[in-house]
Amino acid sequence: MIKIDEKLIKHLEALAALELTPQQRKSIEKDMQEILGYMELLNEVNVDSIDPMYTPIENSVDLREDLVRESECVDLIRSNFPKERSGHIVVPGIHA
């Protein structure tokens, strides 16, 4: 099983763009150990002779015809912007 320690939690924290308190890190470390430990059960199944299945649909599926259809939700989507300026979403500076 992959080693769950503070270093890994901090890495995941950075990837998820989160900022955790030391207590939260501790509790997440414990949760993850339990979750992944449970998942270890799957390793008991012998899959040596089985190809991985990525999707239940391995046949050809019809693709979408290239025709424009404007969404009816544009205003609804825009009404959810936390902060807006001239149609744009205002977000904190990237490296500020």
């Binding site: 300026r85 744009h88 205002v90 977000v91 904190p92 500076g93 990237i94 500020a96």
Partner: peptide, 19 residues
């Protein structure tokens, strides 16, 4: 598309997002 307010990306206090 992102528009960064300010002289450069690193100095921008906020950015504008167009999806």
């Amino acid at each position: 598309k992102l528009i960064h307010e300010g002289d450069s990306i690193t100095q921008a206090h906020y950015s504008l997002v167009d999806m």
